[in-house]
């Protein structure tokens, strides 16, 4: 797999994404999601909110990198908080 030019941070990132998909699948199996409407302007399932949280995290990082030189870890923490809020109240 060396042709894929792996690095430890990207390996951890993709492992986390894969793990989260497995957790979401198991969670859905144990406790099926019910579509509901929260603060987001549409009805969402748990999977929808997770996808929106991932997309939000990606664009938070993009905006952070575009506009500031401050450590990216702050954007990651903000993305985590936003993700939890979206999953809970989205």
């Amino acid at each position: 797999m060396s042709w894929m030019a792996w690095t430890l941070p990207t390996a951890i990132f993709f492992a986390a994404v894969a793990l989260s998909l497995v957790v979401m699948t198991v969670w859905e199996r144990v406790s099926p999601s019910v579509a509901r409407r929260g603060v987001l302007p549409m009805v969402t399932t748990r999977g929808d909110r997770f996808f929106i949280a991932l997309l939000t995290a990606a664009f938070l990082h993009v905006l952070w990198l575009a506009f500031t030189d401050a450590p990216v870890v702050i954007a990651s923490v903000l993305a985590l908080v936003a993700g939890i809020a979206l999953m809970r109240w989205g």
């Binding site: 042709w3 894929m4 792996w6 690095t7 941070p9 990207t10 993709f14």
Partner: peptide, 10 residues
């Protein structure tokens, strides 16, 4: 796509 992401940080 994963390979592209790997390339993008190197």
């Amino acid at each position: 796509l994963m390979t592209v992401v790997n390339y993008s940080v190197q």
